[in-house]
């Protein structure tokens, strides 16, 4: 009997922890969003963050996008050629990129490159009392620190995803047309016939907006919530990458089902 009660208590503690975190995370998000309009008067803060979140992530996005596109071209070709359908290579490459790989891989890379950096930065600001210091200087850290980073991530993610997809299509083109000899005209025309701007491209953009929101939210909150020690910050950084990746993959399924599926 005692053992059962212990188990129940453990479960209760776990549930309280999870709900507590969710609740505080939501409050944090709410607080950040409420302060957002004040950024109109301080665009410099946002530009600075777009630089560190977006521009500095660009290189890894370009390189990965190119390689992912090239691999898609190669794999797609070897599968399609068995059916004599290698002309559809453009469709395979572009649909995979625009609908799925563009938003998802970008979000995963973003979580690893920019998200972890955000968490570490904010955790360190907390550990070195910079956040407290701002509060004591009557500067709201939500306006000064969180909101600009949040907005920057939200803006940067769809841009990165679009660049990833575009570079990937070019990579697929290089492999498919230049190297494997798929017909140049068929590659583009089949692609254009099958890829719809609203259905496919815009849905991909919507996905990356959602992923952007979730990734920065997790990254910022983990930093904000981190135990202000070296160990605490490193744990929080790990959690950011793990949680963001899981959230992105899980949400991707939900969004795909809503957008393209008949579930």
């Amino acid at each position: 009997m005692e053992k059962i009660l212990d188990r129940l208590q453990g479960l209760g503690v776990l549930a309280l922890n999870v709900f507590g975190r969710l609740g505080r995370g939501s409050l944090f998000l709410f607080h950040t969003l409420v302060i957002m309009p004040q950024l109109w008067r301080r665009p410099g803060l946002v530009v600075r963050q777009i630089y560190s979140v977006g521009v500095l992530t660009l290189l890894i996005i370009l390189v990965s996008g190119l390689f992912v596109g090239m691999v898609l071209g190669l794999q797609g070709y070897t599968t399609l050629v068995d059916f004599g359908a290698q002309e559809s290579l453009g469709v395979v490459v572009s649909l995979s990129l625009v609908r799925e790989l563009g938003p998802v891989v970008t979000a995963l890379l973003f979580a690893g490159r920019a998200g972890s950096a955000l968490t570490a930065e904010i955790g360190l600001m907390k550990a070195t009392e910079q956040l407290s210091g701002m509060e004591m200087m009557a500067v709201d850290p939500y306006r000064q620190v969180f909101a600009p980073r949040f907005l920057a991530g939200f803006i940067a993610m769809p841009i990165l995803a679009a660049i990833f997809s575009a570079v990937g299509v070019i990579g697929g083109y290089v492999v498919g047309v230049d190297m494997l000899g798929v017909d140049f005209g068929a590659f583009w025309s089949q692609m254009q016939a099958k890829v719809d701007f609203h259905e496919d491209v815009m849905n991909g953009v919507v996905k990356s907006l959602v992923f952007g929101l979730v990734c920065v939210w997790i990254a910022l909150y983990e930093g904000y919530d981190a135990t202000p020690t070296a160990d605490g910050v490193s744990r929080a950084t790990t959690r950011t990458v793990v949680h963001s990746s899981l959230a992105v993959l899980g949400l991707d399924f939900v969004l795909t089902a809503l957008m393209f599926g008949d579930l």
Partner: peptide, 28 residues
């Protein structure tokens, strides 16, 4: 408004690490 009239010196200094000395003092 009241905090603008209070200064606080933190144990670690709490300087903003991405700004130089001049900008740190200029910040408030």
């Amino acid at each position: 408004a009241l905090r603008r009239r209070m200064g606080m010196l933190f144990q670690s200094g709490a300087l903003l690490t991405d700004l130089d000395v001049f900008e740190n003092v200029a910040f408030p």
